[in-house]
């Protein structure tokens, strides 16, 4: 929870978090190194200098540190986890549902654990989704159209084999699909970041909600065009909000476009943890203002009401979280789990 100087209590839900293992011991090949190093570039580039981690810490931080960064230092009342397997690069996977479930186990009432799907896995993948869903009870799943799988370098949501997966989600009551575009997609000539295939599935599955991670960045213009037409398409703000301190002018112009094109009811804050941490973004976002001319351009004010929606209420509504219950949870105390870990060691 964030409390304004005036004493207003603001629900904070981080809509985009991970618990990954990018250590060398887990690298299947050199892509394992280059993938986590690209994330590291994002960490160094966007995180304020005094908040930066060491590279070793960044590669693996564990559930306790995640809980501290999100729920103790990061204002978050809840966090939404978005797993991705990346088994072609990492022996045990990079940020699997299983790995993410460690944080869920520590703070079940604060963590929303999503599943992952790869529609190229055919009937085997559908069976796995059912099994995972039986175990974890998903509200949403994440897919990553650029994920490598054998010889495949990615896919589009308009590919025929995607439909059975969305039908299966519908059947299981999984109503939220997080869509992460890029960086490489089969066929390689296709623009991997193109978000127009989201339009296709959003129209075909009006009862599902599609959250486009990073608001389609680097295709925010195309994303706004799609989300403007499809009421079941949401924008995940991870990466966009990370510009707020490094490049506030660019952050402002992107936010204006998103407010105009999507509106304040379908934008969801995300830190992309652990690419960076939510604390400094939330501090900066709460202090951020649009002047009158910007507000006219945006078509919406960035007032306290809009900030409440973006930072927590939109995600809570989407995921059916109980706002009052979340805001009245006892503060996170890590001493017990830390003590038990020390005892175990």
């Amino acid at each position: 929870m964030f409390v304004t100087p005036e004493g207003e209590r603001i629900l904070i839900v981080d809509g985009h978090t991970h618990l990954w293992d990018g250590r060398p011991s887990n690298w299947r090949n050199d892509y394992g190194r280059t993938f986590i190093d690209t994330f590291w570039g994002g960490h160094v580039g966007f995180t304020p200098a005094d908040k930066r981690w060491t590279q070793e810490q960044f590669r693996y931080y564990g559930a306790e540190k995640a809980a501290r960064d999100l729920f103790v230092d990061g204002y978050c009342d809840a966090a939404i986890m978005l797993p991705v397997d990346l088994r072609d690069f990492y022996n045990d996977g990079f940020n699997t549902t299983e790995q993410c479930s460690e944080l869920k186990a520590l703070f079940p009432e604060r963590v929303v654990l999503n599943g992952r799907i790869d529609p190229r896995e055919g009937s085997r993948g559908l069976a796995r989704l059912e099994k995972d869903h039986d175990r974890f009870g998903f509200k949403g799943v994440k897919l990553y159209t650029g994920e490598w799988n054998g010889i495949s370098r990615g896919y589009r949501l308009s590919d025929d084999f995607v439909k059975p997966y969305l039908e299966k989600c519908r059947e299981l009551g999984i109503s939220i699909v997080h869509v992460h575009k890029g960086p490489t997609t089969h066929p390689l000539d296709y623009d991997a970041f193109d978000v127009r295939d989201v339009d296709h599935v959003a129209t075909s599955f009006p009862d599902l909600k599609f959250v486009v991670d990073h608001c389609g960045m680097p295709r925010i213009d195309d994303f706004c065009a799609v989300a403007g037409q499809e009421p079941n398409v949401y924008g995940g703000l991870a990466l966009v909000t990370s510009f707020i301190r490094a490049r506030p002018r660019h952050f402002k112009t992107m936010l204006i476009e998103l407010l105009w094109g999507v509106g304040p009811d379908r934008l969801i804050f995300g830190s992309d943890y652990a690419i960076t941490s939510p604390d400094w973004i939330i501090d900066a976002f709460m202090a951020f203002e649009l002047d009158e001319a910007d507000t006219t351009e945006a078509g919406h004010a960035l007032d306290l009401e809009a900030k409440r929606k973006i930072l927590g209420l939109n995600a809570a509504k989407l995921y059916g979280l109980d706002v009052d219950a979340l805001m009245n949870l006892p503060p996170v105390d890590l001493s017990a789990s830390e003590a038990s870990r020390h005892a175990a060691e």
Binding site: G41, G45, R219, I220, M254
Partner: peptide, 21 residues
């Protein structure tokens, strides 16, 4: 405007990542 904002932010993103590299 939307296209200009998008392209400018993308270029800035690339500069940030290149500098971090």
């Amino acid at each position: 405007r939307g296209t200009a904002v998008t392209m400018a932010a993308n270029a800035e993103h690339c500069r940030i990542l290149a500098a971090a590299n």
